Amino acid sequence: MTVPVERPPAVEQPPPAVEDADTPPTPSVREKLGIEERSWMLFAVVVAFILLAFAGMVVLTALAGGTTYVR
């Protein structure tokens, strides 16, 4: 034996908006920048890494008790 089920009426979806072919779409999500636009950041990271490595060499030399290079 089946029992009829009462369901709420279906909600109608609004029609899709008509877009003009002449106007470019507006970006709703901010576009990600490529590496070409972030070359200054890459340069800064490389320089910081080189300076950090140089400072590490100086610190390790000082901790080892050396002040000059062997001639």
Rank of each mutant, 00 (worst) to 15 (best):
M1Y: 03
T2F: 03
V3S: 04
V3Q: 09
P4A: 08
P4Y: 00
E6S: 10
R7T: 15
P9N: 02
P9H: 02
P9I: 07
P9S: 07
A10T: 13
A10M: 08
A10Y: 01
V11A: 14
E12P: 14
Q13W: 01
P14Y: 05
P15D: 08
P16E: 06
P16F: 01
P16S: 09
E19W: 01
E19P: 09
D20P: 13
A21H: 02
A21G: 09
D22V: 10
T26I: 13
T26D: 01
T26Q: 12
T26K: 12
R30I: 14
E31P: 15
E31Y: 05
K32A: 14
E37K: 14
R38Q: 07
R38I: 06
S39L: 14
M41D: 14
M41H: 06
F43W: 05
A44S: 13
V46N: 02
V47R: 02
V47M: 11
F49N: 12
F49T: 15
I50K: 02
L51G: 15
L51I: 15
L51N: 11
L52Q: 01
F54H: 04
F54A: 15
F54Y: 04
A55G: 13
G56R: 06
V58H: 03
V58Y: 02
T61H: 00
T61G: 11
T61E: 01
A62H: 05
A62K: 07
L63M: 12
L63W: 03
A64Y: 00
A64K: 07
A64D: 09
A64H: 04
A64N: 14
G65A: 12
G66S: 11
T67N: 05
Y69Q: 12
V70D: 04
